[in-house]
Design a protein around this nucleic acid. Structure first.
Length: 425
RNA sequence: GGAGAGGUCGCAUAGCUGGUCUAGUGCGGCGGUUUGCUAAACCGCUGGAUGGCCUAAAGGCUGUCUCGCGAGUUCAAAUCUCGCCCUCUCCGCCA
């Protein structure tokens, strides 16, 4: 959420940033609402002050056993006017809030303006494997090895669900453990394990609601949602907290299953493991001081990249343009792993800086130490990045490490997690 | 799912027969006095949100809201009524 005052004072640049995102939102009527809210509030506060004073007087009169009847009668009229103003105010604030909640974050000045075609490759790492045979896709490989059963998953749940079997299931578990170990032991993150069902306030705090409700799985009998990413529960750990400066930065990492309806995306990348309704992911979340957030974003990307480097998977880092970054993000890098079977770059990680956008929604603040002489609290900056998403990583491993005989070599780093096994056959 | 108890300004508690509660007290924290240093003792301060005014600024003065959340009764609500949420205890069910 953006600060209404900020919108007011920077109207032109906010308008431009909405345009850069390819959106038109009526900011003028928003500001009109704010204006009438302010006027309403001023009158209301004046009357309340009067009321409070009169109450003191009535109290004093009653205490001296004097008659307060006329004073009480005159207060009645003011009380009614106050009621009326309060109703108006509540309505105005409701409307204002509704509008503010659907305004996206302002893109950072450093990112390209435009649609997906403006995506910029920042760097690439590694080389695609040189195979002396036509590579199979992960669908064929996993079928041959009997490590994924799409049919059974469809029977149990429906299309676009996955069932890992045998070494497939073990590989999934090995990847999760490997990533969590890397981030906790080497990169200084604290591991958390959160609920996978969250309430509406949490979903609103990180920005999935109210705009993306259609994309979420939601329970029928309770107002709970299946998380689309661990970002939601992990960021909300600190919702409505005021932190001390010395507590920052805070780094959390979490494994979670992620659930996405992918409403309206049928027919696009729907084969195999590339777009599924439930997948596993290890997520990294940071809470930092505002002045540090862009350095922290670079570090976050490096932390995610290291996963791919250790796994020996070729990838590229891209910076997303204004129309491609998510609703809450200011700047976002995607990591795309190359998979030779499907011959595509697969998005396996998104690393974003949300600046104060989520912190304002979720009310996460910190107080600077007295030396800084800034007595009031400020919003932290939040960041998160996948470190990394599993299903597509499995695609890249199966396809890039496939051998001519149909077996799949296991990346060195995963072998300790797989009984020392070198090959899935 | 059933029964009961409870949610108070960092923590712990008082208040809950409506009006000196601008929420008391203890602990913690901050500042100070004392001290060779530390401790103790003593004194003062102590959250959040959002307006207005003064100031070059640092800062100061001041209004309103905030006793889980929301609604209601009343001139007046921490205090009374209703709904919701959460926590704890016991029972039932269950991995």
């Amino acid at each position: 959420m953006l600060d209404i005052k900020f919108i007011k004072e920077n109207l032109d640049s906010v308008k431009k940033s909405l345009k850069d995102r390819g959106l038109t939102i009526d900011l003028d009527s928003l500001l009109q609402l704010e204006d009438s809210r302010r006027k309403n509030l001023n009158e209301l506060e004046g009357l309340r002050a009067e009321k409070n004073k009169a109450n003191d007087e009535i109290t004093a009169l009653l205490k001296k056993k004097q008659d307060a009847k006329s004073r009480i009668v005159s207060m009645k009229a003011i009380a009614e006017r106050i009621d009326q103003l309060e109703d108006n105010l509540k309505e105005t604030e409701g409307e204002l809030n509704k509008l503010l909640l659907v305004i996206p974050n302002i893109p950072h000045a450093s990112i390209p303006i435009g649609d997906a075609t403006k995506k910029e490759v920042v760097r690439t790492w590694g080389e695609p494997p040189k195979l002396d045979f036509k590579p199979f896709t992960h669908i064929e490989i996993s079928r041959n090895l009997g490590i994924i059963d799409f049919g059974a998953a469809a029977k149990i749940s429906g299309s676009n669900f996955v069932l890992y079997k045998g070494w497939g299931a073990k590989l999934e578990r090995a990847l999760i453990n490997f990533m969590l170990d890397l981030h906790t032991k080497k990169h200084g993150y604290t591991e958390v394990f959160t609920p996978f069902l969250v309430n509406r306030a949490s979903m609103t705090g990180t920005g999935q609601l109210p705009k993306m409700e259609e994309d979420m799985y939601r329970l029928k009998d309770e107002d709970l949602f299946l998380i689309p990413t661990a970002e939601v529960p992990v960021t909300n750990i600190l919702r409505s907290e005021i932190l001390e400066e010395k507590d920052l930065p805070i780094y959390y990492t979490a494994y979670s299953a992620c659930f996405r309806r992918e409403a309206g995306s049928y027919g696009k990348d729907t084969k195999g493991l590339i777009r599924v309704h439930q997948f596993d992911k290890v997520e990294m979340v940071k809470f930092v001081k505002p002045e540090a957030s862009y350095d922290e974003l670079e570090k976050l990307v490096r932390d995610a990249e290291e996963v791919l480097q250790i796994l020996g998977l070729p990838y590229r880092v891209v910076v997303l343009p204004t129309q491609d970054i998510s609703f809450a993000a200011s700047k976002c890098y995607d990591l795309e792993a190359y998979a030779c079977g499907v011959d595509t770059w697969l998005e396996v990680s998104s690393c974003s800086n949300f600046e104060s956008f989520q912190a304002r929604r979720a009310n996460i603040k910190f107080r600077r130490t007295a030396a800084d002489k800034r007595p009031t609290s400020e919003y932290v900056h939040t960041l998160n990045g996948s470190g990394i998403a599993l299903a597509r990583t499995v695609v890249a491993i199966l396809e890039n490490y496939q051998q001519k005989d149909g077996t799949v070599l296991i990346p060195q780093a995963l072998r300790p997690y797989l009984d020392g096994k070198e090959m899935i056959s």
